[in-house]
Design a protein around this nucleic acid. Structure first.
Length: 254
DNA sequence: GAGATCGACGCTGTTACTTCA
DNA sequence: ACTGAAGTAACAGCGTCGATC
């Protein structure tokens, strides 16, 4: 049940994820006083996460964005102090120069609240994000990341469900295919007495019964015809029209 | 009006860290 | 105590969209 809700969310997300959000909320213009800080941002001062090379522009953008969001959140200090909720493990880069990424573990309460919000909306506008961050005593960026990861997990789960469904569908079809092959072989065996039938193209000799939608051959049709007094085998050789199943008459198999 | 640029945002894939069996 | 797997926070890179020039 809960999973079904997630499925719905996931579908809604994949269809509706977008940028309507941007229409509602526009961030403050770059002329914001915070922009004055920009020249002071030296690349070397920006943390190169994971010890990997990071595009300088990206890093600048990330920091700018962070600062901007903190401004929205009226919690500018935290952006630089880099500390988080009292209930969570502090992730601060207190040990300067250490490239290792430290990770907090969200508290149960934080996770529950985030989940609750996610159930309502799988995406957040900047205001919601800021409010939620304030409420959880987290940085807006953390809330953003949590939602991003949560969406990814939802999608992954949905993919797994879909995959399982397709697998079962495939198994069913394979089984049906086997059954049809067996049926075909049986029918071919029945028509074997006529050597010419061996050379008869299957497509011409076989037909689908419209009533039961089963594969059938001229043999059964002929049998039916014989029993009903219609044209018998003598009316035509094997593989010829009188032997073929008539789609408008019920086969003997039915 | 068309095209270029920019900023914001979401998605995907990856990494690093934590927890647990 | 050690280890591998699973879970997940954090991040990089990319694509897209709307706004602006």
């Amino acid at each position: 049940m809960e999973q079904q809700e997630e499925v719905g969310l996931a579908l809604g997300l994949s269809l509706g994820s977008g940028h309507q959000k941007q229409l509602k909320e526009k961030p403050s213009p770059p002329s914001h006083p915070r922009a004055l800080l920009e020249p002071t941002l030296s690349l070397s001062s920006l943390p190169a996460k994971d010890g990997l090379t990071t595009t300088p522009m990206r890093r600048i953008a990330a920091v700018k964005r962070e600062l901007q969001m903190e401004e929205d959140d009226e919690a500018t200090d935290r952006a630089l102090i880099y500390s988080v909720a009292s209930s969570a493990v502090v992730t601060a880069d207190d040990d300067e120069g250490c490239n290792s990424r430290k990770k907090l573990r969200l508290s149960k309460e934080q996770s529950v609240l985030l989940e609750d919000h996610f159930k309502e909306h799988s995406t957040l506008n900047p205001k919601q994000k800021a409010a939620l961050a304030r409420q959880l005593n987290l940085r807006p960026r953390q809330v953003e990341v949590w939602f991003q990861n949560r969406r990814a997990r939802t999608k992954l789960k949905q993919t797994e469900v879909d995959c399982e469904l397709l697998k079962r569908c495939c198994e069913t079809l394979t089984e049906e295919n086997r059954r049809l092959h067996r049926e075909l072989q049986q029918l071919r065996a029945l028509s074997h007495p006529h050597p010419a039938a061996f050379f008869m193209p299957a497509a011409a000799a076989l037909s689908i019964c419209p009533s039961c939608e089963r594969l059938t051959t001229g043999v059964s049709a002929a049998t039916a015809a014989t029993t009903t007094g219609a044209d018998g085998p003598k009316a035509g050789g094997p593989g010829r029209a009188p032997h073929l199943f008539s789609p408008f008459t019920k086969s003997a198999a039915c």
